[in-house]
Nucleic acid binder design. Structure first.
Length: 400
RNA sequence: GGUGAGAUACUCAAGUGGCCAACGAGGGCAGACUGUAAAUCUGCUGAUUUUUAUCUUCGAAGGUUCGAAUCCUUCUCUCACCA
């Protein structure tokens, strides 16, 4: 039992520090019913969550199955400093109103994954504000500059002569102090958080709270391209708020290799179930596409509903397998006969008429399912279904 | 503060007076093949209904020239070494 739980906990992790401690916590839970706390901190800087963020949530949900109570920490105080992790320059400060708004957005999203009964949402300003100047000063005596500069990103910036604000030195200290205040048993975070996570252990020792948190680090989820990390700025992300059809389609478009990665980090299936799928694909009894569809269904259902997911699948089948048109698409209306390239731009199917002409030349434009080759084509009054490539559709009404 | 090097399209990167809307690679888009997978092959990848054309673009602003990404001046920023 403990071993099964431990396997699930270990699943997909990049690194675990003090695994023995986790094992003891699990043992106490299974034998004596004792619960323990798992802390995870979130910067309320990014209101739109994508699947990359949910990797951590998924792990927290796994912990909840094995007796953990989650301390879902929203770093409203620390957000005022800005986490220096991975940044090459000092971050801009966030306004309190923005922080509040982002925090609310987080709360509404995370309970799609976490069990609210076993979760406490906390804000670190609650205990950092009362700390005051004296407490803050005390905190700073626990660490020194040389060790702070050992940290990779600080080191690079320091050597390159790029400014590091003193307040940024406080960030890891405060994050660590959160663990002191919350008396966390375990803290989880991304691999890039290692330094900050270890600070929690350090400070728990210094402040003598009688335990040192175990640390569990999750890898960064790759985006749709399978190479770079999932991020909004790279455009390779699946947002938690994506419409069901879009979400389903995006998941189905990932590569087979990446699919297993997503299974490992995002699926709620157990390791044994995933292993069974893998074997099925390898011996040919399962088609990889079916397996990917199952994943797409699971994830779409998680953020929407069973019905929405099933519909998305049916829709996908219609549009792509049978190359029919989707049931729903954006509708546009234009007055008077219009040049096709212009119409494509107006329907947001092409970014420019030049691009539209190229697309026509390459045979990717279809009107009512018929390929168009004449780039001078004029659309007369009537209703048309325009298509560019395989996935962009629009319904256009040309009026007098 | 001193000296030197550099800034070219989404990214890297060639181009040192006209053949430059700018080589090449990556990325992206599209077509073929497929399972909207991967791999592979092909085309496209500043804008514009003048499309074997026109306009705008090579850090910014001026200047030289019939003609400038390329030469000159000033400015802004980045990097390296020294202090």
């Amino acid at each position: 039992m403990i071993q099964t739980a431990l396997r699930e906990i270990r699943r997909g992790t990049a690194e675990i520090i003090d695994e023995a401690r986790i094992e003891i916590l699990l043992k106490n839970y299974f034998e004596k019913g004792q619960t323990y706390t798992v802390k995870a901190g979130f910067d309320p800087t990014a209101p739109d969550l994508h699947l990359g963020h949910t990797v951590l949530l998924q792990k927290l949900a796994a912990f909840q199955k094995f007796g953990a109570h989650i301390q879902f920490l929203i770093g409203d105080f620390t957000a005022q400093i800005g986490d220096p992790t991975g940044k090459s320059e000092t971050r801009k400060k966030l306004l309190p109103a923005q922080i509040e708004e982002n925090a609310q957005s987080y709360k509404s999203q995370v309970f799609k994954i976490l069990d609210p009964e076993k979760t406490t949402v906390v804000f670190n300003s609650e205990w950092i504000n009362p700390l005051g100047a004296a407490g803050m000063l005390e905190l700073t005596t626990t660490y020194n500059v040389a060790r702070m500069l050992e940290r990779d990103d600080f080191d690079k910036r320091h050597k390159a002569g790029i400014s590091i604000s003193i307040s940024e030195f406080l960030y890891p200290l405060l994050q660590g102090y959160d663990s002191v205040h919350l008396k966390s048993d375990i803290e989880i975070g991304g691999t890039d958080q290692k330094f900050n996570l270890l600070m929690g252990r350090h400070l728990q020792r210094v402040y003598e709270i009688g335990k040192e948190q175990a640390v569990l680090m999750m890898p960064i989820l790759e985006g749709l391209d399978g190479v770079q990390k999932m991020s909004k700025s790279l455009g390779n992300y699946i947002a938690v708020a994506d419409a069901p059809n879009e979400m389903f389609g995006k998941i189905l478009s990932i590569s087979d290799t990446l699919m297993w990665r997503y299974y490992e980090l995002l699926s709620a299936l157990s390791l044994d179930e995933i292993e069974a799928l893998k074997i099925g694909v390898e011996n040919g009894s399962l088609h990889p596409k079916k397996v990917k569809e199952a994943l797409a269904l699971e994830i779409t259902e998680r953020f929407h509903s069973r019905d929405a997911a099933v519909n998305a699948q049916a829709e996908f089948e219609r549009v792509h397998a049978q190359s029919e048109i989707p049931t729903e698409m954006d509708e546009f209306s234009i007055e008077g006969a219009v040049w096709i390239a212009k119409a494509l731009v107006d329907c947001a199917l092409s970014p420019s008429t030049s691009q539209a002409r190229r697309e026509i030349k390459q045979g990717s434009v279809k009107i009512d399912q018929i390929k168009l080759s004449d780039e001078q084509y004029q659309l007369e009054v009537g209703e048309y279904i325009l298509q560019v490539g395989k996935r962009k559709f629009a319904r256009l009404k040309v009026t007098q």
